Simulated assay, not measured.
Amino acid sequence: MNWLTRVRERLPFVAKRETPDNLWIKCPRCQEMVFVKEYEANCSVCPKCDHHGRIGADARLEQLLDDGFEILPAPKVAEDPLNFRDTKRYRDRLKAARAANPSSDAFTGAFGAIDGKPAVVGVQDFTFMGGSMGMAVGESFIIAAQKALDEKCGFICVTAAGGARMQEGILSLMQMPRATVMTRRLKEAGLPYIVVLADPTTGGVTASYAMLGDVHVAEPGALIGFAGQRVIQETIREQLPEGFQRAEYLHKHGMVDMVVHRHQLRERLGELLDYLTPAKAA
Protein backbone atom coordinates (compact mmCIF):
# COMPACT_ATOMS: atom_id res chain seq x y z
CA MET A 1 0.00 0.00 0.00
CA ASN A 2 1.52 3.35 -1.03
CA TRP A 3 1.48 6.53 1.07
CA LEU A 4 -1.25 8.18 -1.05
CA THR A 5 -3.63 5.27 -0.46
CA ARG A 6 -2.98 5.43 3.31
CA VAL A 7 -3.66 9.18 3.35
CA ARG A 8 -6.95 8.69 1.48
CA GLU A 9 -8.06 6.06 3.98
CA ARG A 10 -7.39 8.42 6.87
CA LEU A 11 -8.99 11.39 5.06
CA PRO A 12 -12.28 10.08 3.69
CA PHE A 13 -13.25 13.49 2.34
CA VAL A 14 -10.47 13.22 -0.29
CA ALA A 15 -12.26 11.84 -3.37
CA LYS A 16 -10.57 9.12 -5.38
CA ARG A 17 -10.01 10.17 -8.99
CA GLU A 18 -11.08 7.72 -11.64
CA THR A 19 -8.32 7.18 -14.23
CA PRO A 20 -9.09 5.50 -17.57
CA ASP A 21 -7.21 2.25 -18.20
CA ASN A 22 -6.38 3.12 -21.80
CA LEU A 23 -4.20 6.21 -21.29
CA TRP A 24 -0.90 4.33 -21.47
CA ILE A 25 0.58 1.52 -23.51
CA LYS A 26 3.63 -0.60 -22.70
CA CYS A 27 6.17 -0.95 -25.51
CA PRO A 28 6.76 -4.68 -26.13
CA ARG A 29 10.46 -4.05 -26.84
CA CYS A 30 11.74 -1.57 -24.24
CA GLN A 31 8.89 -2.15 -21.76
CA GLU A 32 8.53 1.61 -21.23
CA MET A 33 5.09 3.10 -20.65
CA VAL A 34 4.10 5.48 -23.43
CA PHE A 35 1.17 7.91 -23.48
CA VAL A 36 -1.34 6.49 -25.97
CA LYS A 37 -1.96 9.81 -27.72
CA GLU A 38 1.77 10.34 -28.15
CA TYR A 39 2.15 6.78 -29.44
CA GLU A 40 -0.66 7.13 -31.99
CA ALA A 41 0.54 10.58 -33.10
CA ASN A 42 3.90 8.93 -33.79
CA CYS A 43 2.27 6.40 -36.20
CA SER A 44 2.28 3.70 -33.48
CA VAL A 45 6.07 3.83 -33.26
CA CYS A 46 7.62 3.89 -29.78
CA PRO A 47 9.23 7.33 -29.28
CA LYS A 48 11.80 5.82 -26.90
CA CYS A 49 13.17 2.76 -28.76
CA ASP A 50 11.63 3.21 -32.26
CA HIS A 51 9.79 -0.11 -32.12
CA HIS A 52 7.16 -0.33 -34.88
CA GLY A 53 3.92 -1.50 -33.31
CA ARG A 54 1.19 -3.40 -35.13
CA ILE A 55 -1.64 -1.26 -36.47
CA GLY A 56 -5.07 -1.96 -37.90
CA ALA A 57 -6.27 -1.58 -41.47
CA ASP A 58 -8.05 1.74 -40.92
CA ALA A 59 -5.00 3.42 -39.36
CA ARG A 60 -2.73 2.04 -42.08
CA LEU A 61 -4.92 3.32 -44.90
CA GLU A 62 -5.15 6.76 -43.32
CA GLN A 63 -1.37 6.90 -42.97
CA LEU A 64 -0.68 5.89 -46.58
CA LEU A 65 -3.47 7.35 -48.72
CA ASP A 66 -4.47 10.93 -49.45
CA ASP A 67 -7.78 12.15 -48.04
CA GLY A 68 -10.92 11.02 -49.83
CA PHE A 69 -10.01 7.40 -50.57
CA GLU A 70 -12.70 4.81 -51.28
CA ILE A 71 -13.00 1.56 -49.34
CA LEU A 72 -13.57 -1.34 -51.72
CA PRO A 73 -16.60 -3.59 -51.09
CA ALA A 74 -16.11 -6.61 -48.86
CA PRO A 75 -16.65 -9.94 -50.69
CA LYS A 76 -19.46 -12.33 -49.93
CA VAL A 77 -18.11 -15.83 -49.32
CA ALA A 78 -19.26 -18.92 -47.45
CA GLU A 79 -19.03 -18.15 -43.73
CA ASP A 80 -18.13 -21.63 -42.50
CA PRO A 81 -17.77 -23.96 -45.51
CA LEU A 82 -16.49 -26.92 -43.45
CA ASN A 83 -18.68 -26.47 -40.33
CA PHE A 84 -15.40 -26.41 -38.43
CA ARG A 85 -15.20 -26.72 -34.68
CA ASP A 86 -12.24 -27.06 -32.30
CA THR A 87 -12.60 -25.68 -28.78
CA LYS A 88 -15.07 -23.22 -30.32
CA ARG A 89 -17.20 -23.12 -33.43
CA TYR A 90 -15.58 -21.25 -36.30
CA ARG A 91 -18.73 -19.15 -36.66
CA ASP A 92 -18.34 -18.01 -33.05
CA ARG A 93 -14.67 -17.09 -33.62
CA LEU A 94 -15.66 -15.00 -36.65
CA LYS A 95 -18.41 -13.30 -34.66
CA ALA A 96 -15.98 -12.41 -31.85
CA ALA A 97 -13.36 -11.13 -34.30
CA ARG A 98 -15.90 -8.91 -36.07
CA ALA A 99 -17.16 -7.54 -32.76
CA ALA A 100 -13.60 -6.44 -31.92
CA ASN A 101 -12.73 -5.05 -35.37
CA PRO A 102 -14.28 -2.50 -37.73
CA SER A 103 -13.72 -4.77 -40.76
CA SER A 104 -15.62 -7.91 -41.68
CA ASP A 105 -12.42 -9.90 -42.26
CA ALA A 106 -8.63 -9.65 -42.25
CA PHE A 107 -8.07 -7.89 -45.59
CA THR A 108 -9.30 -4.41 -46.52
CA GLY A 109 -8.79 -2.79 -49.91
CA ALA A 110 -9.07 0.89 -50.82
CA PHE A 111 -8.70 3.01 -53.94
CA GLY A 112 -7.27 6.50 -53.74
CA ALA A 113 -3.98 8.28 -54.25
CA ILE A 114 -0.57 8.57 -52.62
CA ASP A 115 0.83 12.06 -53.02
CA GLY A 116 -1.58 12.54 -55.92
CA LYS A 117 -0.63 9.29 -57.68
CA PRO A 118 -3.57 6.87 -58.15
CA ALA A 119 -3.15 3.61 -56.28
CA VAL A 120 -5.01 0.68 -54.79
CA VAL A 121 -3.85 -0.28 -51.31
CA GLY A 122 -4.75 -3.59 -49.68
CA VAL A 123 -4.04 -4.04 -45.97
CA GLN A 124 -3.93 -7.32 -44.07
CA ASP A 125 -4.91 -6.77 -40.45
CA PHE A 126 -3.18 -9.00 -37.89
CA THR A 127 -5.71 -8.07 -35.21
CA PHE A 128 -8.39 -10.04 -37.08
CA MET A 129 -7.67 -13.70 -36.28
CA GLY A 130 -3.95 -13.17 -36.76
CA GLY A 131 -4.47 -11.84 -40.28
CA SER A 132 -5.05 -15.43 -41.38
CA MET A 133 -5.71 -16.04 -45.06
CA GLY A 134 -9.11 -17.53 -45.77
CA MET A 135 -11.59 -17.31 -48.62
CA ALA A 136 -12.58 -13.73 -47.73
CA VAL A 137 -8.95 -12.59 -47.68
CA GLY A 138 -8.23 -14.22 -51.03
CA GLU A 139 -11.36 -12.73 -52.61
CA SER A 140 -10.57 -9.28 -51.19
CA PHE A 141 -7.06 -9.48 -52.65
CA ILE A 142 -8.53 -10.35 -56.06
CA ILE A 143 -11.04 -7.48 -55.88
CA ALA A 144 -8.24 -5.03 -55.02
CA ALA A 145 -5.97 -6.31 -57.79
CA GLN A 146 -8.81 -6.14 -60.33
CA LYS A 147 -9.53 -2.56 -59.26
CA ALA A 148 -5.89 -1.70 -60.00
CA LEU A 149 -6.23 -3.32 -63.43
CA ASP A 150 -9.44 -1.40 -64.14
CA GLU A 151 -7.97 1.93 -63.00
CA LYS A 152 -4.58 1.19 -64.64
CA CYS A 153 -2.72 2.07 -61.45
CA GLY A 154 -0.30 0.44 -59.05
CA PHE A 155 -1.33 -2.05 -56.37
CA ILE A 156 0.29 -1.88 -52.93
CA CYS A 157 -0.28 -4.78 -50.57
CA VAL A 158 0.59 -4.45 -46.88
CA THR A 159 0.95 -7.93 -45.41
CA ALA A 160 0.69 -9.04 -41.78
CA ALA A 161 -0.41 -12.61 -41.22
CA GLY A 162 0.22 -15.81 -39.36
CA GLY A 163 -0.51 -17.87 -42.47
CA ALA A 164 -3.50 -19.72 -43.88
CA ARG A 165 -6.73 -20.03 -41.87
CA MET A 166 -6.86 -23.61 -40.63
CA GLN A 167 -10.64 -23.49 -40.08
CA GLU A 168 -11.13 -23.38 -43.86
CA GLY A 169 -8.72 -26.19 -44.69
CA ILE A 170 -7.83 -26.67 -48.36
CA LEU A 171 -10.11 -23.77 -49.31
CA SER A 172 -7.72 -21.38 -47.57
CA LEU A 173 -4.71 -22.86 -49.39
CA MET A 174 -6.50 -22.36 -52.72
CA GLN A 175 -6.20 -18.60 -52.17
CA MET A 176 -2.43 -18.82 -52.72
CA PRO A 177 -2.61 -19.72 -56.45
CA ARG A 178 -5.65 -17.45 -56.97
CA ALA A 179 -3.73 -14.44 -55.63
CA THR A 180 -0.66 -15.49 -57.62
CA VAL A 181 -2.67 -15.39 -60.85
CA MET A 182 -3.69 -11.78 -60.11
CA THR A 183 -0.09 -10.71 -59.51
CA ARG A 184 0.74 -12.23 -62.88
CA ARG A 185 -2.04 -10.24 -64.55
CA LEU A 186 -0.71 -7.03 -63.03
CA LYS A 187 2.73 -7.86 -64.40
CA GLU A 188 1.34 -8.59 -67.86
CA ALA A 189 -0.47 -5.23 -67.79
CA GLY A 190 2.78 -3.46 -66.88
CA LEU A 191 1.36 -2.19 -63.58
CA PRO A 192 3.48 -2.09 -60.42
CA TYR A 193 2.78 -4.49 -57.60
CA ILE A 194 4.53 -3.36 -54.43
CA VAL A 195 4.54 -5.35 -51.19
CA VAL A 196 5.02 -3.79 -47.76
CA LEU A 197 6.02 -6.50 -45.30
CA ALA A 198 4.77 -5.63 -41.81
CA ASP A 199 5.20 -7.56 -38.59
CA PRO A 200 4.60 -10.47 -38.79
CA THR A 201 4.39 -11.91 -42.32
CA THR A 202 4.58 -15.70 -42.21
CA GLY A 203 3.20 -18.97 -43.54
CA GLY A 204 1.19 -19.29 -46.74
CA VAL A 205 1.05 -15.53 -47.25
CA THR A 206 4.86 -15.43 -47.44
CA ALA A 207 4.75 -18.44 -49.76
CA SER A 208 2.48 -16.62 -52.22
CA TYR A 209 1.61 -12.97 -52.86
CA ALA A 210 3.88 -11.49 -50.15
CA MET A 211 6.99 -12.50 -52.11
CA LEU A 212 5.81 -11.83 -55.67
CA GLY A 213 6.10 -8.05 -55.71
CA ASP A 214 8.13 -5.94 -58.12
CA VAL A 215 9.55 -4.26 -55.01
CA HIS A 216 9.56 -5.60 -51.45
CA VAL A 217 9.58 -2.99 -48.70
CA ALA A 218 9.80 -4.02 -45.05
CA GLU A 219 9.18 -2.11 -41.85
CA PRO A 220 12.05 -2.10 -39.33
CA GLY A 221 12.18 -5.17 -37.14
CA ALA A 222 9.35 -6.97 -38.96
CA LEU A 223 9.29 -10.76 -38.59
CA ILE A 224 9.23 -12.29 -42.08
CA GLY A 225 9.41 -15.99 -42.88
CA PHE A 226 7.58 -19.18 -43.69
CA ALA A 227 8.12 -21.67 -40.85
CA GLY A 228 8.90 -20.63 -37.30
CA GLN A 229 12.47 -20.32 -36.06
CA ARG A 230 12.14 -23.22 -33.60
CA VAL A 231 10.83 -25.54 -36.34
CA ILE A 232 13.72 -24.61 -38.63
CA GLN A 233 16.30 -25.16 -35.89
CA GLU A 234 14.90 -28.59 -35.06
CA THR A 235 14.85 -29.52 -38.76
CA ILE A 236 18.40 -28.47 -39.70
CA ARG A 237 19.79 -29.10 -36.17
CA GLU A 238 21.76 -25.88 -36.19
CA GLN A 239 21.61 -22.66 -34.21
CA LEU A 240 20.23 -19.85 -36.36
CA PRO A 241 22.04 -16.48 -36.51
CA GLU A 242 20.92 -13.53 -34.44
CA GLY A 243 18.16 -11.50 -36.11
CA PHE A 244 17.21 -14.39 -38.39
CA GLN A 245 13.88 -13.72 -40.19
CA ARG A 246 13.93 -10.05 -39.24
CA ALA A 247 13.64 -7.33 -41.89
CA GLU A 248 17.22 -6.10 -41.54
CA TYR A 249 18.67 -9.62 -41.87
CA LEU A 250 16.57 -10.34 -44.95
CA HIS A 251 17.57 -7.01 -46.50
CA LYS A 252 21.23 -7.81 -45.95
CA HIS A 253 20.77 -11.18 -47.67
CA GLY A 254 18.76 -9.90 -50.63
CA MET A 255 15.27 -11.13 -49.82
CA VAL A 256 13.95 -7.61 -49.13
CA ASP A 257 14.72 -4.62 -51.34
CA MET A 258 14.57 -1.94 -48.67
CA VAL A 259 13.74 -1.36 -45.02
CA VAL A 260 11.77 1.87 -44.59
CA HIS A 261 10.76 3.62 -41.38
CA ARG A 262 7.02 4.13 -41.05
CA HIS A 263 7.47 7.91 -41.06
CA GLN A 264 9.02 7.74 -44.54
CA LEU A 265 6.86 4.92 -45.94
CA ARG A 266 4.22 7.04 -47.65
CA GLU A 267 6.84 9.23 -49.35
CA ARG A 268 8.85 6.21 -50.52
CA LEU A 269 5.77 4.46 -51.92
CA GLY A 270 4.86 7.63 -53.81
CA GLU A 271 8.33 7.67 -55.36
CA LEU A 272 8.06 4.00 -56.36
CA LEU A 273 4.65 4.55 -57.95
CA ASP A 274 5.99 7.55 -59.86
CA TYR A 275 8.94 5.54 -61.12
CA LEU A 276 7.19 2.21 -61.89
CA THR A 277 3.77 3.26 -63.24
CA PRO A 278 3.83 3.40 -67.08
CA ALA A 279 3.44 6.89 -68.53
CA LYS A 280 0.42 5.80 -70.60
CA ALA A 281 -1.30 4.56 -67.42
CA ALA A 282 -0.37 7.50 -65.22
Rank of each mutant, 00 (worst) to 15 (best):
Q146C: 11
C157K: 08
F126G: 03
I114N: 00
M133Y: 07
G122P: 05
M135H: 03
S132D: 09
F107Q: 07
M129N: 07
Q124Y: 06
E151H: 11
V123S: 01
A145H: 01
E151R: 12
G134P: 04
I142N: 04
N83T: 07
D125S: 10
M129T: 05
T159P: 05
A96T: 14
K95I: 04
P81G: 05
K147S: 10
A145L: 05
M135E: 08
D150P: 04
Q124I: 13
I143W: 04
S132Y: 08
D150H: 09
F126W: 05
V123Q: 00
A136E: 11
G130D: 07
S104N: 08
V123L: 02
P102W: 00
G109A: 01
T108N: 02
F155M: 11
I142Y: 06
D86N: 09
M133D: 11
G134V: 05
D115V: 04
M135G: 07
A144T: 10
P118L: 01
I143C: 12
E139M: 11
I156S: 02
G130V: 04
I156K: 04
R89P: 09
V123R: 00
V121T: 02
A113N: 09
S132R: 11
Q124S: 13
A106S: 13
L149A: 08
P102T: 10
D105G: 15
S103F: 10
A99E: 14
P102I: 07
D105R: 15
S140L: 06
S103G: 13
D150A: 13
F111I: 02
I142P: 01
S103H: 15
C153I: 00
F84P: 08
P102C: 13
K117I: 14
D92I: 11
A113V: 03
S103D: 13
S132A: 14
S140Y: 01
S132G: 07
M135R: 11
Y90A: 10
T108H: 04
V123E: 00
V158F: 04
D115C: 14
A96W: 09
T159S: 15
V137D: 10
S132V: 10
P102Y: 08
A145P: 03
P118T: 01
Q146P: 06
G131F: 01
R85A: 12
I114G: 02
G122T: 11
T127Y: 15
G112I: 01
S132H: 12
D92L: 08
G122F: 02
V121F: 00
K88G: 02
G131P: 01
A136L: 10
R91Y: 08
S140I: 09
A144M: 12
G138T: 04
I156H: 03
F111N: 00
G134F: 03
A106D: 07
A145M: 07
